Computed example of a mutant assay.
Amino acid sequence: MPAYITAMGSFLPGEPVPNEEVEEYIGSVGRASSGLREQTLDNCGIKTRHYAIDKQQKTLFSNTELAVGAIRRAVERSNITLDDIDLIAAATGLPDLIAPGFASGVHGELGSPPCEIVSTHGICSSGMMALKNAYLQVVAGEKKNAVACASELISRLMKSDRFTDVRPVSDDGAIAMEIAFLRYMLSDGAGAALVQDRPAAEGISLRIDWISLTSYANTERTCMYMGAADNSGKRSWLDYPSAAEAAVDGALALRQDLGLLPHLVRLGVKEYQRLLDEGRFDPDELAWFPAHYSSERMKSMVLKEIEKKKLRGPSVEKWYSNLTRVGNIGSASIYVILEEMLGEGMISAGDKLLLMVPESGRFAVSFAHLTAVSGGEV
């Protein structure tokens, strides 16, 4: 039995925030903060993003509310109601609560009838994990209507107030580069996809042909992490005498080991090559290559690696991302990209799409192949 994405929704809180106003929301940390902001934003290419906090650093929406907003918009565009949802698969990198799972909060806030839920936790790939769970349940005939969603609310973790007592690591009082640059890279938002066992009666639906998720944690060191002061894996924040002492040591800050990022590029292209060699897709048949990446510089690195390996890659004009306008929303990015493409009428019946979502956590790479079908087509 096939499975189709029949409707999508997104929720981007507030108005777009331009680069020059970023520190009006998250504040500045360390004497070199503004200079680092310019360097980071020049590299990543982001011009605007969205925050779920205001300029007083007050939280306006919870992460759960962002996810629910995206789900409601997806359902409003479909032929079902909230009462018809059989499964909610919810992904995030940083839930509102440590426990219970994120999907429990989403289901509770949504207020839909009893249904199955699943929470997928991680970084960027967790959104694809949720989508694959929904896809497989529909394909197996377990569910007729499944909702997959991904949501991120990272701004409240990046507020300057949270770094007041963090131990500085340089003479000018600046926090570690591996923490500081992420304050300007990441943003808030959510996306949702309704997955059903038949295409929508009208408009374009996306048949899910396959989804591939591969972890390389068995060979790679941790790159992006939270809950420790370093990536050695020897001391968790739970091993400190108190959460306050863990926070002072920087163990409750999100970090990324920049020196390991080239590994992600190589692994992403390695997975692309594996799927290509297996005949899972034909680059010449692709109409679009929607890709989640953290910066325009990373995109250039991927293109160079593909050229270096002399692979048949998707042509540059087939790549699609809205990173420069909505920022890096982690696990929700690929949902927001697809929602925008469908909403703008960019996808036509017969188009084939190859989605790419790399994750720098401990390195995982996800791909998905979709085929667009017209209303009612089976």
Rank of each mutant, 00 (worst) to 15 (best):
G259A: 10
L323G: 10
F163Y: 10
P2I: 00
G9Q: 09
S33L: 01
D83S: 11
A90N: 07
P113Q: 09
D230E: 10
L82H: 05
I26M: 00
L342D: 09
R198P: 05
L60K: 06
G189W: 13
A140I: 01
R312T: 13
E344I: 05
R325Q: 15
P199N: 09
P168V: 05
F163K: 00
R325H: 13
D230K: 09
K144Q: 13
G14C: 09
G35A: 04
P13K: 05
R207I: 07
E178M: 11
R280A: 15
D171R: 05
G233M: 11
L60R: 07
S126P: 08
L311A: 12
L60Y: 00
A201P: 02
R312A: 15
G101M: 08
S295L: 02
G191M: 02
A229P: 02
N43S: 10
N322W: 08
A247D: 12
A180Y: 02
M224A: 06
R77K: 14
R255C: 00
D257T: 13
P114V: 02
Y51F: 15
G45M: 04
D171H: 08
A134H: 01
I306N: 03
E307F: 09
E344W: 04
L370A: 10
R73T: 05
E344N: 11
E109Y: 03
L136F: 08
Y135M: 03
P13G: 08
T59G: 00
W210Y: 09
G93E: 11
V75F: 01
L342R: 08
I347L: 12
M128D: 07
T324Y: 10
A192N: 06
S62M: 03
L194S: 01
R362I: 14
P100Q: 09
R77T: 13
G376L: 10
I117W: 01
G361V: 10
V166F: 02
R72N: 13
R255P: 01
E23Q: 10
G127S: 01
R280E: 14
D83R: 08
V302Q: 10
A130I: 01
G35M: 12
A99F: 11
M356C: 04
G268V: 07
N231H: 03
A32G: 15
S62E: 04
T164E: 08
C223M: 12
A74F: 03
N145G: 02
S295P: 07
R312G: 07
A229L: 03
E317F: 06
L370C: 10
K308D: 14
R362W: 03
V138S: 05
I211N: 02
R207K: 15
E38F: 03
V365L: 04
A349G: 10
R235E: 13
K352P: 06
R280F: 08
G141V: 08
G327H: 15
S331W: 06
L110W: 07
P95G: 09
Y4C: 06
F102M: 11
D257Q: 12
V195I: 14
T164A: 06
I204R: 08
Q256G: 08
G250T: 02
